[in-house]
């Protein structure tokens, strides 16, 4: 039987990341990483002046 280890949040990175690891007998058998935030930037840009993209899309990530 595999043990599930969930680490959420992963700190010291930008954004919201979670990691789920399955361990069986001391061996990692499966691992998932998950981005835990969604803002819909593409949906926000729809219908806007194309020149606004440089201001809005750069704010996907401020790092």
């Amino acid at each position: 039987m595999a043990d599930k280890i969930m680490i959420d949040p992963i700190t010291r990175i930008e954004g919201h990341l979670a990691v789920e690891v399955e361990v069986e007998g001391g061996v990692v058998v499966d691992a998932k990483s998950m981005g835990m935030m969604f803002r819909g930037m593409e949906l926000i840009m729809r219908g806007r002046d194309p020149r606004d993209a440089q201001q809005i899309m750069q704010r996907i990530c401020g790092v």
Partner: peptide, 13 residues
Amino acid sequence: HPNISAAAGDLAI
């Protein structure tokens, strides 16, 4: 602070 804290996971929250 999520970008600085050494603690992650349960320890952080």
